[in-house]
Design a protein around this nucleic acid. Structure first.
Lengths: 141, 141
DNA sequence: TTAAGTGCAAACGCTTTGCAGTTCA
DNA sequence: TGAACTGCAAAGCGTTTGCACTTAA
């Protein structure tokens, strides 16, 4: 399981506040990729006093300390947020129904290895891989 | 070399207009990844009467007909545009200096193959792979 | 001739920011 | 106590859209 908000925040020398704890709890409670607005919605359901701006600030903080990841899925301008799982994975986005799934495996690591071998001029830090296409349901209509 | 704007547009049954030709020429004239605004700047240098809105409309049209690609580089909300080279490639983005380079190779095809083999439930159409890290210069400071 | 494209300006949607008040450590 | 965080509202910024006019075919 993932650590709780307090543990994570203290580990990085960050203050423990209501907004941060609420945002962390929301992200931990789902496998989905949530927009900031969707996070805020769920956060507000727990504590009405928490503001969208604080949700954005909390998400950015967690991203900076490497505990949360932001992805740009589809050709969409909106960011999607999720807990930064230690296992590398990438996203499959259905262009028809919008379904987003994770695909886990060694592929991301292979990319890093490939770069490290073939292309010494670049030091990879983060790989963002999004495959757009048709999910099982939409491909068979 | 790439075809000229007229050829490309007629091939797809699209009208040949000043804005479209100018946008195409700008994209063909560089290896860089340009924002819509950067494209507009160069377009306006040639024909002052062309509007930013038409640049967006032209870019979208070329994207729809598959001749131009839009990428979201970095954690940036801005789209970057380039001619849709037939050879698959991906982007290396330096988080320090912002340099964007192409990396060509079989990697993207490998990703598609991997998905096709391992994950029959998804039909891949487009792969967007962006690796963030440090470029040669920035890694050695 | 006329459907399609354009310039302009205003709207949009996600995200950031300035500020005065609040809270964690 | 004081630096950090917050809510609020307003601004920012890339992008899209409505509309009257123009143009390619």
């Amino acid at each position: 399981m993932t650590d709780d908000a307090e543990t994570v925040l203290r580990r990085h020398g960050q203050r423990v506040t209501g907004a941060r704890v609420a945002v962390w709890d929301v992200l931990c409670s789902t496998q989905d990729h949530l927009t900031a607005e969707a996070v805020a919605e769920r956060v507000v359901a727990v504590d009405k006093s928490i503001n969208l701006a604080s949700v954005y600030r909390s998400l950015s903080l967690f991203e900076e300390i490497g505990e949360v990841r932001q992805s740009h899925l589809g050709s969409d301008r909106t960011a999607y947020w999720e807990i930064g799982h230690p296992d590398e994975h990438f996203h499959l986005v259905c262009r028809n129904c919008g379904l987003v799934t994770h695909h886990e495996g060694s592929l991301v690591q292979q990319i890093v290895d490939h770069l490290t071998e073939d292309h010494h001029a670049f030091v990879p830090e983060r790989v963002e891989l999004t495959v757009t296409g048709l999910c099982h349901n939409c491909a068979h209509d």
